[in-house]
């Protein structure tokens, strides 16, 4: 009896895997609840392969005055032979990439007038938290970041802006009296048309 149950479960699991390869609204409900990632998605690099690079840059400021140049947090690894076996930085870089892509996707979906909604997404908050934890000048009280897209090693076009965040207070820093508190009001954000 248990054997039959196992075979039925395996058959059902495979059937869901098959259906899970196509985008369908009927499955969205199920996928949204697939917290354990039991439904695989095998369409690697397809139908639209990633053929551009994303860049995450941030700037520290105080009282709206920039204290640093825009600094880049690397989202890509340098290839090494060891990296083919042991590649711990890949996880963080892919996580940042995923979060940045999710922000870009959401910004496109909600439209330019509603880009402020992106700052309430987990991606945005996670990236903001991560960047806030990086070293900043002692007098810095605020941070903002932007996402750029570029054309790889041999570019055919100039990097373009995808998303510009609001200005946020850095945690545990004394903000000036009129500094923006997080979450910020509608951010000065814009996306690629």
């Amino acid at each position: 009896m248990l054997t039959v149950a196992v075979i039925v479960v395996l058959a059902g699991w495979f059937a869901v895997s098959v259906v899970g390869q196509v985008d369908s609204r009927a499955l969205d409900w199920l996928k949204a609840r697939d917290h354990f990632s039991l439904i695989p998605r095998w369409t690697f690099f397809a139908p639209k392969p990633g053929t551009t690079d994303y860049h995450l840059v941030y700037q520290s400021s105080t009282d709206g005055r920039a204290l640093t140049e825009w600094r880049e947090e690397q989202l890509a690894d340098t290839r090494t032979v060891l990296g083919a076996v042991w590649n711990p930085s890949k996880r963080n870089k892919k996580a940042l990439c995923d979060a940045v892509r999710a922000m870009g996707r959401m910004a496109r979906e909600v439209g330019e007038e509603n880009t402020w909604q992106v700052q309430y997404s987990i991606s945005y908050i996670a990236v903001l938290s991560y960047l806030s934890g990086l070293p900043h000048p002692p007098s810095a009280t605020q941070i903002r970041f932007m996402v750029l897209e570029s054309d790889g090693f041999f570019p055919e076009w100039e990097p373009r802006l995808l998303f510009l965040s609001a200005v946020h207070a850095l945690p545990d820093r004394q903000p000036p009296d009129d500094a923006t508190a997080a979450p910020a009001p509608v951010p000065a954000a814009r996306t690629r048309p």
Binding site: F45, T51, D53, G152
Partner: peptide, 21 residues
């Protein structure tokens, strides 16, 4: 089934990225 994959330059364009290339 992807027009991008059936076109000429997709493998170059993937390897041209810093992320996966």
């Amino acid at each position: 089934v992807s027009p991008q994959w059936r076109s000429e330059g997709v493998i170059f364009r993937i390897f041209n990225t810093q992320t996966y290339g």
